[in-house]
Amino acid sequence: MNPAYVAFEGEHRIGAGDLPEVARAAKQHLDQRKDAAILVFNGRTSALVDIDFRGSVDDVLARLPQPAPARDEEPAPTAPRGPGRPKLGVVAREITLLPRHWDWLAQQKGGASVAIRKLVDEARRASGDKDRTRSAQDAAYRFMTVMAGNRPNYEDAIRALFAHDRRRFATLIADWPADIRDHAIRLAYSDQAD
């Protein structure tokens, strides 16, 4: 399983874990090497995380972005509930359908909202493995583009990644710096057994 956040200084991984832990390691590294260029990545998506490293470690930690709650998590109750329907975190949005779609939805037990939720849940279950594989490939691609875009075999490695050719992918990046290579492999194939 990939850590929540990962920090790199050049080709070396200098920290991994939750955001405060990684920020602390990065700040301590910067305090020792003022010229260091540190990149912090979201460990799941490889999105770069912007951290303001000015001041003390406590200053840096106080300014960290707060993580958004996971979409499937219910927020913790803040007060005792009163009578009525429970708050389910439902967000009203607009969708556009053809009249025949609205006619079909109107005939479904529970109405349009219930039918659409069931359809979405069914589609999520049916495409779950594909979605996880695609997300892993996208995360590896983002990381590799930032950290290895000028490395030998980069383009061929990207082709192998999206062609699902794990053996060729590993062969093409075998000579890359160990921390970059290992993290790219971990990202690309974290959803698969070895």
Rank of each mutant, 00 (worst) to 15 (best):
Y141N: 10
A68D: 05
R181E: 03
R54K: 09
R24H: 11
G15Y: 02
L64N: 05
R124V: 15
V146M: 02
D179I: 08
T133C: 11
I38M: 00
L98M: 04
D52T: 07
A92L: 12
L64Q: 05
V6G: 02
P75I: 07
F53G: 01
A193R: 10
K27T: 05
V120H: 14
L48F: 02
F143C: 00
R117Y: 11
H12D: 11
H29F: 06
T145A: 12
G110D: 08
R125V: 10
H164T: 14
N2W: 01
A170E: 15
P86G: 02
A47R: 11
A79S: 13
K87W: 11
I51R: 00
G15D: 04
Q192F: 05
N153F: 06
D59Q: 09
R125K: 15
G111T: 04
F169D: 02
A36G: 07
V60M: 08
A23R: 01
G43R: 00
L88M: 10
R186T: 10
M144W: 04
F162V: 11
E94Y: 11
I95M: 15
D58W: 10
D18M: 12
R33S: 12
P177K: 09
L19F: 07
V57E: 03
H101I: 13
D138Q: 15
E94H: 13
Q108P: 01
T78R: 10
R159F: 08
R186L: 13
H183Q: 13
R54E: 06
T45C: 06
L105V: 12
S56R: 06
S113C: 02
P69Y: 04
V40E: 00
E21H: 13
V57K: 02
R134T: 15
E9K: 04
S46H: 00
R33K: 14
V91C: 03
A7V: 00
E73V: 10
A160Y: 03
R24E: 11
D59E: 09
Y141W: 14
L64K: 07
K118E: 15
K109W: 07
I38F: 01
A115Y: 04
R151S: 06
R63K: 14
A148F: 01
F169H: 07
K27E: 01
A23H: 00
H29E: 06
L30K: 00
E73T: 12
R63G: 10
A139F: 04
